[in-house]
């Protein structure tokens, strides 16, 4: 009898809950990846040998060949999930923009920043990954050559802050959304968010400079 009834009673869908979990988990995973990525790349500051050693390790263990495309997939997956909440029609975008302008509210602006950076990262991040993953193995010299070529420096000068903004805001947002960061810890978390952004920007810029002046 229950099966007969169940045919006519709509089961509450758990879809949105699962998607929200996945959005959060993919986001958190990408945040962790981005931080590790930055730290690994910045090993070039110590010397090209250090970076090449690390790259070589990932190459030999096939983590670059397999992990790379997986990260690319996670990246697209995260975009598709998060895009459910992003307004794509001009009318709604107008509403969101007007809302942020009206509110004078930092966290609302941060959301706009996240949406805008997401779009930029989608394109530039994809280009970056394509270029890197189609010319494996990674080496300090190849990266340096790219950056010293001219336009790529500009490319990374744009992509770097976009990524760091998106990552640190995203990290903070996960914390408040899931109640890990409580109300009384919020201002502290915001400070941490700013510090994280600052630290990784500095590391990123120094890394770029190091690439600029790396003898090929």
């Amino acid at each position: 009898m229950s099966s007969i009834l169940a045919m006519h009673v709509a089961q509450p869908s758990r879809r949105d809950a699962y998607l929200d979990w996945l959005q959060m988990l993919s986001g958190a995973a990408l945040v962790l990846f981005m931080w590790s990525h930055m730290i690994l790349v910045s090993s070039v500051i110590i010397g090209p040998g250090a970076m090449n050693a690390i790259a070589g390790f990932f190459e030999r263990t096939y983590m670059a060949q397999i992990g790379g495309p997986l990260v690319f997939a996670a990246f697209l997956f995260h975009f598709v999930l998060a895009a459910r909440k992003v307004p794509f029609r001009a009318e709604k975008q107008g509403v969101a923009w007007a809302h942020a302008k009206m509110m004078h509210h930092r966290d609302t602006w941060l959301w706009i920043v996240q949406v805008v950076t997401a779009m930029v990262i989608l394109i530039m991040g994809a280009i970056h990954m394509w270029v890197v993953l189609t010319s494996l193995p990674i080496s300090a010299e190849k990266s340096a050559a790219r950056i010293q070529g001219g336009w790529w420096l500009l490319f990374y000068l744009v992509l770097l802050p976009m990524v760091e903004l998106h990552v640190s805001i995203g990290f903070y947002r996960i914390g408040v959304k899931w109640g890990v960061i409580k109300a009384d810890a919020r201002s502290g978390a915001k400070k941490a968010e700013n510090i994280l952004f600052g630290v990784f920007m500095v590391i990123g810029l120094v890394t770029l400079v190091r690439f600029m002046f790396l003898a090929i």
Partner: peptide, 12 residues
């Protein structure tokens, strides 16, 4: 338990 409820919240 859906996007009109708690999972719609974007945490702003």
């Amino acid at each position: 338990g859906n996007d009109t409820g708690i999972f719609g919240c974007m945490g702003l």
